[in-house]
Amino acid sequence: MTALGILVQVMALLVVGAYIFVVADRLMVGTETGVRAALVYPVRRLSFLLLQPVTTTERPDFEAWILAPSLLFGLAAVGAVPIPLDAPSAGGDIPAGLVLFGAAMLIVLVAVYIFGWAPNSALPMIGGYRFAAMVLSVGIPFSLVVLTTAIPAESLSVGMIVEAQSNLWFVIEQPLGLPIYLVTAAAIAFWGPFDLPEGSDLAGGIAAEASGPRLATWRFARAALMVTLALMGQAVFLGGYLGPVLPGWLWTVIKTLILLVILASAGRTLARMRVQRFVWFGWVILLPLALVDVFLSGWIAL
């Protein structure tokens, strides 16, 4: 596949996926407007945000403020490159795809932090620093559970990892993997119940000063990030494009949707965790569990 082909594929995937995710989230809130209204909700919302002007604060860091949504979307896009859609070599089959993905997801910290820093306003800034605490706490367990899937595959290529699941999906072979992955992925996408940087106790936190197109691009980039995380989740734990009868790409789509719906519903039904509890949770619960996952899976693979 050429670079241009991959670019078109990734962009299309993220735009469509982000749309579906926003619709799913809208349905999860439980307003009585119904499915039809939810389907047009993203369009109406985007139209409104495009009509609003971009506001600024007194002395913001303009460059950082414009860079943050761009960087977040860039990271979401580059994280999706190594994920194969219907065959091991489809997509940008990168030998060390897992490393690229892991690196991109941890740099999300920079995008979120500067988005909170840029407006020079107290509440967004607290949000940015909260996110730093979160990523430092879950970055290691997140990388560990993703890396563990490379052990039986003997490769860091995502295509090879999917192929290694032809007998048994890793969600069963590595039972701790997917739950830890979903929890840490929600945290990295600052999605509920870990939406601490954008919490309602900070009046919207990092996004409190953003309006119009700036808010639209930020929300879009975050939805795209969720899609990338769900795509990788299904590839390394749910056997990616493997599945009977249906074509491979359809399996990828179905499994991605399942993970997106799980994440969306958790975001709206679970209470936001306190930041101190979260740091404790990341280090004392998630990290040891992730280490157990590594060695248990290693033992099984031998």
Partner: peptide, 13 residues
């Protein structure tokens, strides 16, 4: 309280 804690769905209920 539920809104402040981010549980919008239950707040609505």
């Amino acid at each position: 309280a539920l809104l402040i804690c981010g549980v919008d769905r239950l707040a609505l209920r």
